[in-house]
């Protein structure tokens, strides 16, 4: 799967959707709920179930990243599955609130 910045992905087993904000270095498979995510425009695979090991949930508006590959995604829709890359759980990016300037 080509995880280009701006590309959009959705979970095969829950309602979560994510946008890539930083690409991965090297080969990477973005997963949710234990299964590879699919391109937003691609048909949703049938018959897959949410893996209990990856059911921590995805919160909309949060950023998740992987230290090793550098991949970072923004959750554009919430879901019950949790995000991983190559089987490794993504970490939540803690954002420091900035004073609003606009």
């Amino acid at each position: 799967m080509e995880l280009k910045p701006g590309s959009r992905w959705r979970s095969a087993v829950c309602t979560a959707e994510a946008v890539v904000v930083r690409p991965a270095k090297g080969a990477a498979v973005l997963e949710c709920g234990g299964h590879p995510m699919t391109a937003l425009t691609a048909p949703k695979p049938e018959g897959l179930t949410l893996s209990p090991d990856h059911s921590g949930g995805v919160a909309v508006g949060k950023r998740y990243f992987d230290e090793e590959t550098g991949l970072e995604v923004l959750a554009s829709k919430p879901g019950t599955g949790s995000l991983a890359v190559n089987g490794r759980a993504l970490q939540l990016r803690e954002a420091k609130a900035l004073p609003s300037s606009d």
Partner: peptide, 24 residues
């Protein structure tokens, strides 16, 4: 370009960080 503007927005604003009373 789109990626410039969105990079600025998502790095400086918390999604849904405003309460219902806020008005600009």
């Amino acid at each position: 370009r789109h990626h410039h503007l969105t990079a600025y927005v998502i790095s400086s604003v918390e999604f849904m960080g405003s309460d219902e009373e806020e008005a600009a």
